[in-house]
Amino acid sequence: MCLGIPGEVVEIHPEHADLAKVNVSGVKRLINIGLLADDPPKPGEWVLIHVGFALSKIDEAEAAAAMEFLEGIGQAYEDEIAALRESLIE
């Protein structure tokens, strides 16, 4: 829950501008980008995701470091990715 997961924005939802499809370690899911309304991310940019919401934009180096940190956490990260996989955001 506290873990910020890095994801790459794939596309912005055509009907809901506050939703975006992101790629997190190969898992593609919709997340909410409404908290970045002041500077919305574009496809190809990276965001740090907390419980389904992008909280900040990050660069690719930061994304790689954050991912490595998470993978090092082990089970909790796997649980988080499993939970993201099950996520129903629409």
Partner: peptide, 10 residues
Amino acid sequence: MVYSPLDSLK
């Protein structure tokens, strides 16, 4: 168990 509060909404 949910990943996001938005999942609860659904």
